[in-house]
Simulated assay, not measured.
Amino acid sequence: MSSQPFIIGIAGGTGSGKSTFTNRLKSIFGDQVTVLYYDNYYKAHDDMPFEQRKKINYDHPDAFETDLLLEHLKKLRNGEEIECPVYDYANHNRSGEVTVVKPSRIILLEGILVLADKRLRDMMDVKIYVEADADERILRRVMRDVKERGRDIENIADQYLTTVKPMHYLYVEPTRTYADLVINSGMNNVALDVMRTKISSLLEEK
């Protein structure tokens, strides 16, 4: 058996349920799986004032420091721990803190655009796309951004209409074609059972 990590990519639009699906797998397997969030790899913009950072297009592939994520995935694959950046949503910038992430047999890589970069896709063993109705996605995003990220409704609406919605159709939704598994919500129990069985068998191989 290969001792290299088994990498599962979990993509989907904002509010689609990909974090829910990821967290459900994490709650089943705990420390036996490592979770990496693509959002933590948003580029740092320390040189830019807050009002300017608010206007950045965060739903474009160029918003991410993908090279750093690739470097970190390679390290994890080689059995090395990494220092993952921590993103601060309220300030639209990296927090300056890092989280030490240790390698494990299973890596869950979650984010809206994890299937957009061929280099990332080539490192994945399974590619999952979580989809949901557009109305449901925007409602979930509004509730999440107000409750968890300290955003105001006007800012959320402006960001959604100017970047989130158009970028979803331009960059996120087309990556659905790369998925091995397309599921219709993070609460899809059939898909959860499929992945639970797969992960369990991989962990038992050890």
Rank of each mutant, 00 (worst) to 15 (best):
A63E: 06
K55R: 13
S2C: 09
V164T: 11
H168N: 11
K206L: 15
K102A: 15
S200C: 06
D125G: 14
S104M: 03
P61F: 10
P166I: 02
L69W: 08
P166Y: 02
E65N: 12
T163N: 14
E148W: 03
T175N: 00
K18I: 06
E65L: 09
L115K: 08
G111F: 01
P166T: 00
C84V: 04
L181P: 04
F50H: 00
L139I: 08
Q4P: 05
M1S: 14
G186F: 14
V101R: 09
D193C: 02
R53C: 04
K75L: 12
Y38W: 04
E71W: 02
V182Y: 11
V130S: 10
D31S: 06
L69P: 04
A132V: 10
D135A: 12
V100L: 09
A44V: 11
I199Y: 12
K198S: 09
S2D: 13
A179C: 04
S201W: 00
V182P: 08
V100G: 02
N78E: 15
P49M: 00
T197L: 13
F29R: 05
R151L: 05
K75R: 15
S3E: 11
K127F: 08
Y169W: 14
G30C: 13
V86A: 12
E65P: 01
A132K: 06
Y58I: 01
F6L: 13
R24I: 09
I28C: 12
K54Y: 08
S185G: 05
Q52K: 07
D62W: 02
E205P: 11
R121D: 02
V35P: 07
D125I: 12
Y42V: 04
M123H: 13
G12M: 10
V164L: 13
P49T: 01
V130G: 03
L192H: 13
